[in-house]
Design a protein around this nucleic acid. Structure first.
Lengths: 122, 122
DNA sequence: GACGTACGATTACATTTGTAGTCATACGGG
DNA sequence: CCCGTATGACTACAAATGTAATCGTACGTC
């Protein structure tokens, strides 16, 4: 279980996390904005995601409706920990420091993070 | 430039960011703790990193000394932004929220992040 | 000066990924 | 009832990746 989801596959997952279930054509339509894949490509990605148990299908007539079989929160949690482990020895603060230094933190971002931390300290 | 560095290659880079220059044998030795690659495998990774311009070499007699050709900070910055863009729409706070929820934030981590933010607000 | 040996270079090969094309077929329209 | 068409399944194929073996050769040792 929990096979790795590739970048291209991830884009498909995002569509379905945003709205599901959808059939292949619909998924393709929704991806058209960001990707220039053919329908065939999208279908390949869908099959691979199904074999990886990342998507579940439900027959609707002679087509399938696809829906996520894993929660976005679970996926994001897994990826985040992998990432922070790999680059920052598992600690979040160096990542924040990194963002701070590259000035990618807006005042709102800062405020939001502070609010989160306040919450945690209670 | 800036070709993507794979996971295995990244492990090699870490060794050299920690201490450089080193020859292949030394890098292999230092990786032995964490990876069970053969020397041949390490050499392949080294060559690939050299073709990707991620490492530079310096001849020492008939062997090479390898050293990073890119800064760890630059690499980490790039990877961090890619990651946060992909999963959190470029905003850091949701990532912090994610860590907060999965209770992966130690009190020290929280303190460090707060200190960082204080610094930024000045 | 021959010989093993330590090196980088070259080659190998399975798997994953990105990107699609082709095939069989069931369904809906006339 | 036949035909085009939409759809999932299967096939294709190059590039990247993980993992390693082999090859040619310069070097140091006897």
């Amino acid at each position: 279980m929990a096979e790795r989801i590739s970048d291209a596959e991830h884009a498909v997952m995002e569509v379905l996390w945003d709205h599901a279930p959808l059939d292949a054509q619909n998924i393709y339509d929704r991806l058209s904005g960001s990707q220039s894949w053919t329908l065939a490509t999208v279908k390949t990605l869908l099959s691979r995601l199904v074999s990886k148990d990342a998507l579940a299908t439900e027959a609707q007539g002679r087509k399938f409706l696809y829906r996520p079989a894993i929660e976005r929160t679970a996926y994001v949690a897994g990826e985040s920990h992998r990432f922070v482990d790999r680059l920052f020895g598992g600690k979040l603060s160096p990542l924040v420091a990194q963002f701070a230094e590259s000035e990618k933190l807006s005042p709102e971002d800062i405020a939001e993070i502070e609010a989160l931390l306040q919450e945690l300290k209670k």
